[in-house]
């Protein structure tokens, strides 16, 4: 189990992380979300011992992160990088050895991982021969081949097309089934919703949301309706408790102040009988993200320049 207890970090006048506390159990996936400069990467850097927290402590199974614990961690940094002139196989060997694995242990798995990620290249190719996407896959292999118990992925989906993003999602779920604790940050809330068991939202260094993904969404109530019906925007907006009505994916997105108002919307929408869609759901993570952080907060943070990732 990974445990962060009252972690704080400042850089000069900048409060990058403020009193951050959470836990992640084995076999669970945690999505860490927040706008640029919210403190996601600073959190990762403190877990990985790249920087020292000003206060609080971080432990893995009750132990501080030391050289031995590092063998159990797999990390994909946001900024990707490999040795361009070194062969793919040699790079995988190197990172596996740095994580305490022998070449004999790794050799039989290398081609399997290359196939799993569908890397377009051979183990004997130099990295510079690969496309950027395939280089990223090789880097993911270097982060995962030693079968880490704690996997930290900083924006793993950035730069991947939808097909490769799905491959990665599948692999993350597979690692979870193998018992690994996984944290990843992503700007794409759909990816977080799809597989994250838990979600933590950071805003300017503060934890503003923390819980199981489903529960977090449910806690906001079923205030979002997707509707495909003859009812007009004006008719829907006239219902008390309807906050907004917007065009969305060929239908209408109705935002409610109270889930109970959904009944009135349903009655209006079906007054003439059959309709093709009425889906009342809690807000998506993206909608929650916008609600919690708000455009004003984002604008303010950018203007002040006082946040750091």
């Amino acid at each position: 189990m990974l445990k962060l207890e009252n972690i704080s970090k400042t850089f000069g006048d900048l409060r990058a992380v403020v009193d951050e506390s959470w836990e992640l159990a084995d076999g669970r996936i945690l999505g860490l979300i927040g706008q640029n400069g919210a403190g996601k990467s600073t959190t990762f850097k403190m877990i990985l011992n790249f920087i020292e927290a000003d206060s609080g402590q971080i432990t893995w199974n009750g132990r501080k992160i030391d050289s031995q614990v590092m063998n159990e961690i797999g990390f994909l940094p946001e900024e990707r990088g490999l040795y361009p002139d070194v062969k793919i196989g040699e790079q995988i060997f190197y990172f596996a050895e740095l994580h305490g694995k022998s070449r004999q242990e790794i050799r039989p798995k290398m081609q399997q991982w290359m196939d799993k990620f569908d890397v377009k290249g051979k183990l004997t190719d130099k990295v510079k021969k690969l496309s950027k996407g395939n280089q990223q896959k090789v880097q993911l292999i270097t982060a995962l081949i030693h079968e880490p118990k704690l996997i930290i992925l900083d924006e793993p989906f950035s730069g991947l097309d939808p097909v490769n993003a799905q491959i990665l999602l599948d692999i993350i779920v597979e690692q979870k089934k193998n018992g690994a604790a996984i944290i990843y940050s992503s700007h794409d809330m759909n990816n977080v919703s799809a597989i994250a068991d838990d979600v933590i939202m950071l805003n300017r260094g503060h934890v503003v949301l923390n819980g199981e993904t489903g529960q977090v969404r449910q806690s906001f109530g079923r205030t979002m309706i997707y509707l495909e019906s003859p009812a007009t925007k004006a008719e829907l907006s006239a219902i008390p408790g309807v906050v907004s009505v917007e065009d969305y994916a060929g239908g209408l997105q109705v935002t409610l102040s109270d889930p109970k108002v959904g009944r009135q919307v349903f009655e209006l929408a079906t007054k003439n009988g059959y309709i093709t869609a009425f889906d009342q759901q809690p807000p998506t993570l993206e909608q929650i993200f916008k609600m919690k952080i708000g455009q004003d907060a984002i604008d303010e943070a950018e203007k002040e320049g006082l946040t750091h990732e």
């Binding site: 011992n49 050289s67 590092m70 990390f75 940094p77 900024e79 270097t142």
Partner: peptide
């Protein structure tokens, strides 16, 4: 400069 150091230092302490 190539940022590979981030991956390396996640596996080995900087002093080593």
């Amino acid at each position: 400069g190539s940022r590979i150091l981030d991956s390396i230092l996640a596996a080995v302490p900087a002093r080593q």
